[in-house]
């Protein structure tokens, strides 16, 4: 009887399955040891509620209160025979609007970080009327992009949910692109025989008259924890304009600038 060499099967499927199972178990046990930090002398793991230098993405919204600085230019609204007349700066009133959007806070450490805002803002420019002039209103919606910094004046190291986490101060350059839409309501003389003013409403048909607005926006606010990731934010901000509303190519010597006060809040997610 001849003996032929028969190679032995060293690894069967069962062996391979057992090997991988053992490796998986070893990894699982070692990783769980890393994440489950234990209190000295105790058995319970410490819950990690909050890490101050993790980034936060927030949905934010609130009211915008606009106060115009400077006179409002005379306008022709529709096929009227006369303009609205220039409206003096003393007639300015506070208009109200809103701002909705998303901001991202990316800390460099626990004290300060980069702040980026993307939002949509609707503001209202208001002037009161008098015996010869009806009130004037201009509504504009712009897309806002802001970039700047945020400093934590105070922050809690590992605060539990539903407590104050930080008091912050932020400053950013706020750019207003657009506008996405606009609407002007003023008064004009429709009949030369009559001095009676009538309300007229119209819109600038393109963006040519408007500049890309640039403002310095300063804010102060607080962040309050809700749970490990979610936190509430309350904020008050003031925008100081760096350029006029209307383009100098479109209208001569217009000094109309807008200051905005923002009061609002949001819901943030801290990573």
């Amino acid at each position: 009887m001849k003996h032929y060499f028969q190679p032995r099967i060293l690894l069967r499927r069962e062996h391979i399955a057992l090997l991988f199972g053992t490796i998986f178990l070893a990894i699982t046990v070692s990783v769980s040891e890393v994440f489950a930090q234990r209190v000295e002398g105790g058995d319970e793991p410490v819950p990690l509620y909050y890490v101050a230098d993790n980034p936060v993405i927030s949905l934010k919204g609130g009211g915008v209160y606009t106060y115009p600085k400077g006179k409002f230019p005379s306008l022709l609204i529709g096929e009227t025979v006369a303009g609205t007349g220039e409206i003096p700066a003393e007639y300015a009133e506070t208009g109200s609007g809103y701002r909705l959007g998303v901001d991202g806070f990316f800390p460099f450490g626990r004290r300060a970080g980069l702040l980026v805002e993307l939002s949509s803002q609707k503001y209202e420019v208001k002037y009161k009327g008098d015996s010869t002039l009806l009130p004037t209103r201009m509504e504009v919606q712009t897309f806002q992009f802001g970039i700047g910094g945020e400093v934590n004046l105070w922050y809690g190291e590992t605060t539990y949910p539903a407590t104050l986490r930080a008091i912050f101060l932020s400053g950013l350059f706020d750019f207003g692109f657009g506008p996405l839409a606009n609407r002007v309501t003023g008064s004009s003389v429709v009949d030369t025989a009559s001095l009676e003013r009538e309300e007229a409403t119209g819109s600038f048909v393109n963006n040519d008259p408007f500049r890309t607005s640039v403002a310095l926006k300063g804010s102060v606010g607080v962040r309050i924890g809700v749970d490990q990731h979610l936190e509430l934010m309350l904020e008050g901000g003031y925008s100081l304009p760096l350029n006029p509303v209307f383009s100098s190519g479109a209208i001569r010597e217009s000094d109309l600038e807008l200051t905005h006060l923002f009061l609002g809040g949001g819901l943030g997610f801290r990573f």
Binding site: P73, A181, S203
Partner: peptide
């Protein structure tokens, strides 16, 4: 938020100059 929320008027406006 980027959907226009200001209703534009079909009547045009121009500067009185």
């Amino acid at each position: 938020v980027n959907i226009s929320c200001v209703q534009e008027s079909p009547i045009p406006v121009a500067f009185d100059q």
